[in-house]
């Protein structure tokens, strides 16, 4: 029998995934590792990780990574890329790191067109710190800082970061995907691959927001999370390519 699918070699065989059981943040990191393997860029890849659940990737990937200060990941990531333009810098952030504390850095990195690829994992919560409200938390969603459900009067509406980035002229490619079923996982993998190729081949900025959900803090069984994403979350955050000015097909 022939092996037709296995763990990519770019995930450390001795490494452990630090994500919670059933958390599809792990799926995102797996897809990034598969793209790195397929594009054969292991030694060129640098993965700056935001503060939050993203750091769980550190001991699992078998390529370079760097920890960052909260919200400053795009800044330190682009600083690295500026001095290693031959490298491929894939910036992994959550909704706190990129949309709250790092909003300025996220926008200005995109606006200057720094040739990095930002992967924003939107799970609508601050997972690592125990489930506080995020700028992407849904209206009515409970969290430890919105115990009765998030209200517009207190916190405004969820921020649609992909659309916000797409309003800027400079970014070459902006998309949103999800990883809650096989079809979407395969589509999102192509989005990631295209975004990374745009960095490599066109020396341009690319952005992919990926919708997940925090199984631990939602308090619902893992098996119900995919339909929660399909029926609730994706009504707020739409998947698809929002902006594509690249020459890649």
């Amino acid at each position: 029998m022939e092996c037709i699918y296995k763990k990519p070699a770019t995930l450390d065989p001795k490494g452990k995934s630090g994500f919670c059981p059933g958390c599809t943040y792990g799926t995102v990191v797996k897809l990034i590792a598969e793209v790195v393997e397929e594009l054969d860029i292991r030694e060129r890849t640098m993965l700056p990780m935001g503060v939050g659940c993203a750091v769980s990737a550190r001991d699992w990937v078998d390529f370079d990574s760097m920890m960052s200060l909260h919200g400053r990941t795009t800044a330190s990531g682009l600083g690295y890329k500026r001095v290693h333009p031959e490298g491929v810098t894939i910036i992994l952030q959550g909704d706190g790191d990129a949309v709250a504390i790092g909003m300025a850095e996220s926008v200005h990195t995109a606006n200057r067109g720094e040739p990095v690829t930002v992967i924003l994992v939107n799970n609508q919560i601050y997972g690592r710190t125990g489930g506080q409200m995020a700028p992407t938390t849904l209206i009515g969603q409970k969290s430890t800082t919105s115990v009765a459900g998030k209200r517009v009067e207190d916190a405004g509406y969820p921020i649609h970061m992909a659309e916000l980035i797409a309003t800027l002229k400079t970014p070459r490619f902006v998309a949103r995907g999800s990883v809650h079923n096989v079809k979407e996982i395969l589509k999102t993998k192509e989005l990631i691959k295209k975004a990374v190729r745009i960095q490599m081949e066109e020396n341009a900025y690319s952005f992919v927001e990926i919708v997940t959900a925090c199984t631990t803090n939602l308090g619902i069984p893992t098996s119900e999370v995919p339909s929660y994403i399909e029926d609730v979350v994706l009504k707020e955050f739409k998947t698809g390519v929002i902006k594509d000015e690249s020459n890649l097909n």
Partner: peptide, 22 residues
């Protein structure tokens, strides 16, 4: 490489990232 950073926290972190790169 010259960058007029958007703010000082960004500037010091650009320096940090560049230093990680040697």
């Amino acid at each position: 490489q010259f960058i007029q950073a958007e703010c000082e926290p960004a500037a010091i972190n650009m320096v940090l990232g560049a230093s990680v790169g040697g």
